Amino acid sequence: MHMKINFILVGLVVILMASCAVRKTSNNGMSDLIGKQWQLVELQGEGVSAKVNGKIPFLKLDEENGRYSASGGCNGIGGEYTLQKNNGITFSRGMSTMMACADMRVENELRTLFEEADTYIVNEGTLILSKGKDGAALAKFILVSDQSDKLAGTWELDYIIESGDFNTLYSSRKPTIIFDMAEKKVNGNSSCNNFSGNVKIDGHAISFGPLMSTKMACPGNGEQVFFKNIERVTGFDVQDSVLTMMMDDIAIMRWKKK
């Protein structure tokens, strides 16, 4: 009886050790892969434009819920992914939007990619998906650099869309914004009232809110135009001392570093 129990215990230990080994292997290089934005640059051996239908084609693997999101420049594609030992990966298709766009080639091939790919390699900011370790690359992605560290500090508004004459709109005071990256907060002045709130940044994607402000009565409609447009912002780009905020691919606000 005691011998039988010992055999059972030994068996359980072996199973647990094997399970831990598989998990450790499957996590190899995982921190370099998941939770990052990857831009599609090559598909089935052909180069992919930086924007398709005006949008950046991308892939992102979420760490918390084991799901991926992607786009070939038209619809949002998503589902679940599983990492396996020896750099194995599998994708299962979930729900996606069903818009029709002018260029559907990249999106159609991207859907096929997720059915075929079973191996990944990450090396110096490049992600390659292939079928089999020795198979040809099915797709190549490059890491979208995180520019959030460039946002820290104070910025003064220099341009805003739909404003008419900018200098007349903000004749007394130009709006300012200050980023606190450690707290993921912003504060500033709308040209009249002070405001503060949260900011969410993911690669080049950015969104604000909710924003709270003081309630002083303001002349003109400069403040109204400011809040209307900052709530529409979906992306940003920083070049030297210039911050451009965009709605999709349209520049709607431009700031200069103070």
Rank of each mutant, 00 (worst) to 15 (best):
L169W: 02
I250T: 14
R93Y: 07
S172L: 13
L143N: 09
S207Y: 08
Y68W: 13
W155T: 00
I5K: 15
C218A: 03
S213K: 05
S71Y: 01
I161H: 01
E64Y: 14
R232I: 08
Y120C: 03
V233T: 14
K55E: 11
L12V: 15
P175H: 05
Q224Y: 08
H2Q: 15
I177E: 01
I161E: 07
N221R: 10
D249H: 12
L110V: 08
E156I: 02
T119I: 04
W255Y: 14
L9R: 12
C218Q: 05
H204T: 03
M30C: 06
D248N: 12
I8E: 12
G45M: 04
L12C: 15
N6Y: 15
G235L: 01
V48G: 04
L211M: 13
Y81C: 08
F195R: 11
T168A: 12
I206S: 06
I161R: 06
R23K: 14
L12T: 15
E162I: 07
S19D: 05
S172H: 12
G153R: 03
N75S: 04
K150Q: 09
T234C: 04
D165S: 13
V106I: 14
W38I: 12
W255I: 01
K60Y: 15
K184A: 09
S96N: 11
N87P: 01
G35E: 09
A102I: 05
T154N: 04
Q147G: 05
D134R: 13
L127M: 08
M247H: 09
D32S: 14
D248Y: 10
G88R: 04
W155F: 00
K257A: 02
K257M: 00
N86C: 00
Q37G: 04
F114K: 02
G72R: 13
V144C: 01
I5C: 14
D248A: 06
I177L: 06
Q84I: 08
N187Y: 04
T112I: 07
G188W: 02
C218K: 02
M17K: 03
E109T: 06
V22W: 10
M95G: 01
K36I: 13
G164D: 07
T214N: 12
M1Y: 09
G235C: 00
S191A: 08
S163A: 15
N229Q: 15
G94F: 12
